[in-house]
Simulated scan of single mutants.
Amino acid sequence: MNDAPKVSIFRKEHFNAAHRLHNAAWSDEKNKQVFGLCNNANYHGHNYELIIQVTGTINPDTGYVIDTKILSDLVQREVCKKFDHHNLNLDVPEFANLNPTAENIAIVIFGKLRPHIDSTLELKIKLYETERNFVEFPAN
């Protein structure tokens, strides 16, 4: 049994992106009713704040759970460079057939990062779409 304490490391990143919430199977009226201003045909943007949480035991050789420079480089490569100043609906293949809600964006980000982080470490994504609206994946 491993009694080593677990520690969470957090890395905060930022990206700006445009999107449109839209369900192609619905009428224009239903899309406007459900998504309101977020259904603007000309898209709209957000200044997203992304917080990545990695939890695990401390490596006795390094003193780290994970090297934050390595984590930052990973997030920049896999998320920020692919999302920042892009239209999520048009420019990011993962959203070609997936509505880019904050919930779905967080799940996509998790999927992009998880394969690159040691499987013994827990990963959690917190994504702020606005100061008051944010999501967390996976949920507790």
Rank of each mutant, 00 (worst) to 15 (best):
N2D: 15
N2W: 15
D3P: 02
A4L: 14
A4S: 13
A4H: 11
P5R: 07
P5K: 08
I9S: 06
R11W: 09
K12R: 15
E13C: 14
E13I: 01
N16P: 01
H19A: 00
K30E: 12
K30S: 12
Q33K: 07
F35V: 02
F35S: 02
G36E: 05
L37Y: 13
N40Q: 02
A41L: 09
A41E: 11
A41R: 07
N42L: 09
N42R: 13
N42W: 08
Y43H: 13
Y43V: 03
H44T: 07
N47I: 03
N47S: 12
Y48M: 04
E49Y: 12
I52Q: 03
V54R: 03
G56Q: 04
T57M: 11
T57P: 02
P60M: 09
D61K: 10
G63H: 04
V65T: 05
I66C: 04
D67C: 10
L71T: 05
E78R: 14
V79M: 06
C80D: 14
K81R: 10
F83K: 02
D84T: 08
D84G: 07
H86C: 15
H86R: 15
N87A: 06
L88N: 01
L88R: 02
N89M: 08
D91K: 12
D91F: 08
V92L: 06
E94I: 04
E94Q: 12
F95K: 03
N97Y: 09
N99I: 15
N99Q: 08
N99M: 10
A102Y: 01
I105N: 00
A106P: 02
I107D: 04
I109T: 02
K112V: 05
L113I: 04
P115T: 03
D118S: 04
D118Y: 03
D118N: 11
T120Y: 09
L121Q: 07
L123M: 07
K124G: 04
K124H: 03
I125V: 15
K126Q: 14
L127E: 00
Y128Q: 02
T130F: 10
E131M: 11
F134H: 12
F134W: 12
E136F: 01
